[in-house]
């Protein structure tokens, strides 16, 4: 814990560090934590970082993110570091990893895709064509997805 903390330590919860600067709000939206009724959350944005120039950091109290949530996070902050905090200490570090396909995490944005019919029951599937730069493609219609708009299509 060498770096100076801009927000006070939390007792239990999750710290997400190294979010690309300016993207913390998108991360909250992606994790569906932007409802106003969730756990206490502290956020710092655009702070200096040795690794990446500037970065955002999020601390979510009393909540340990699960793997599915980490998969979502990977879409916006693939290089973020996630620490599970228990009793003020880092209890676990979790890696976020983009798999090969996202199942029911985002839906295809293409207006003529078969998955646009909300009554169709099969899961939304988006293939990871490349992780860096991020290239996503609908597994059904084959259309590439606009990465900048991806938060608007999370499920």
């Amino acid at each position: 814990m060498s770096e100076m903390r801009r927000v006070t330590a939390i007792c239990n919860g999750t710290a997400i560090d190294h979010i690309p600067s300016g993207h913390a709000l998108q991360v909250l939206k992606m994790l569906r934590l932007d409802t106003g009724r969730s756990n206490p959350i502290s956020m710092v944005m655009n702070v200096p970082s040795g690794k990446m120039g500037r970065k955002d950091v999020l601390k979510i109290e009393d909540r340990e993110l699960n793997q599915e949530e980490l998969d979502r996070l990977a879409l916006i902050a693939p290089k973020a570091s996630v620490a599970i905090i228990r009793n003020y200490h880092v209890a676990e570090k979790r890696n976020i990893e983009l798999g090969s396909e996202l199942i029911n995490i985002v839906r295809c944005s293409f207006s003529n895709c078969i998955t646009q019919n909300s009554r169709e029951p099969l899961p939304h599937k988006i293939k990871i064509i490349s992780a860096d730069p991020l290239v996503l493609r609908c597994s059904y219609c084959g259309k590439n997805q606009d990465i900048d708009q991806i938060v608007d299509f999370i499920i």
Binding site: F110, N112, I114, N117, L122, C138, S139, Y140, C141
Partner: peptide, 26 residues
């Protein structure tokens, strides 16, 4: 089918083999 992706969707939905006879502009 007029919707793109309909053939892959159908293939995922059933056991029998599916041949795509044209899906939208796909």
């Amino acid at each position: 089918h007029p919707n793109q992706g309909a053939a892959q969707y159908s293939a995922d939905a059933v056991e029998i083999p599916i041949l795509n006879g044209g899906d939208g502009a796909g």
